[in-house]
Simulated scan of single mutants.
Amino acid sequence: MYKVAVVQAAAVPFDADAATRRSEQLIAEVGAAGAELAVFPEAFIGGYPKGTSFGTAIGIRTEPGRAEYERYVGGSVTLDGPEVARLAAASAEHGVHVVMGVIERLGNTLYCTALMISPEGGVVGKHRKLMPTGSERLVWGFGDGSTLDTMDTPGGRVGTVLCWENYMPLLRQAMYAKGVQIYCAPTADDRPTWQSTMQHIAIEGRTFVLSSCQVITRDAFPDDHPVEHAVPGGDTLMRGGSVIIAPSGEVLAGPVFDEETILYAELDMGAKTRSHLDFDAVGHYSRPDVFTLTVNEAPADSVRFVR
């Protein structure tokens, strides 16, 4: 059995140091509980500015919106920065593999990224969100196929797909083909319908699915942070709904709404093997004579210097 944890907590928006400190505390708590893998929500470090437009409309930008973007950039992290080093140190100290949602800064562009951190190797993988959804494209760049990374753990191979990327069938197929046994889905989607998607993926991929979403209210953001658009929960910007699901579709823990918590489950990794008697999306239930998928894993660099 392999004990895992899904962290449902509030981020500290726009404050990378404070958010990292909160993450260190939560990793310690998970380690003390005996879990070996912890999955955190999307954009846990950096923040998910739900309801904020950054002063934009078609053909319009405003100086207050640019100033808000500057603050958002200021709360992001770089892969070689001190915050990521601290996460790696916490992982090593407490013996916990970590999937952490961050806002990553690379040059002058932000990415919604999931880091995969090993106690032995530090950052062993990353996944930049391939397809930011809707207005996310205003503030986040597009990932490419070079960051479809996985992480091997004592409990099996871990892969990460962020939020509405989980609605991309070809991306899911690529992750199944990579042999993902523990499928992590950090998200900002707190709707009840998200649970149906997570159960479908568990059954389709015959994987364990671990989905983590924040519970966060308006007062977690700075007082002068604009939330221009009303959200369904009023002052509750995200209400959780984190869940752990078995390859059979059985819900092992959650979903939990409207409170901070850590979900735990003991995974019987043999359940995945047993479930493939019925179905293997990239094996005996596939039809490569009819359907094939080509995945481009080359970095999509915009500038290349050649000598």
Rank of each mutant, 00 (worst) to 15 (best):
V306D: 09
Q195P: 01
G107Y: 03
T133C: 13
R304I: 14
Y48R: 04
F279I: 09
L148K: 01
G179T: 03
A33V: 06
K178V: 06
M238H: 10
P186R: 01
G81L: 06
E165F: 05
V227Q: 14
L237H: 10
V303I: 15
M100L: 13
N296E: 14
Q173D: 12
R71V: 11
G95S: 00
S286L: 07
E260D: 11
R66N: 14
D224A: 06
I203Q: 13
S275Y: 07
E68W: 13
S196T: 12
P169G: 07
G51V: 07
R274A: 15
E63D: 12
R66C: 05
Y167F: 13
M269S: 08
C163N: 03
F40E: 02
N166Q: 13
G233V: 02
E36P: 06
E228K: 06
C213K: 12
R304M: 10
M151W: 01
V306Y: 09
G141T: 08
S23C: 13
W164E: 12
R105N: 07
E93T: 14
D15P: 05
V123G: 07
E24P: 09
E120P: 00
D189G: 05
S118T: 04
I201V: 15
P49I: 01
M1I: 10
F221Q: 05
A265M: 06
A89L: 10
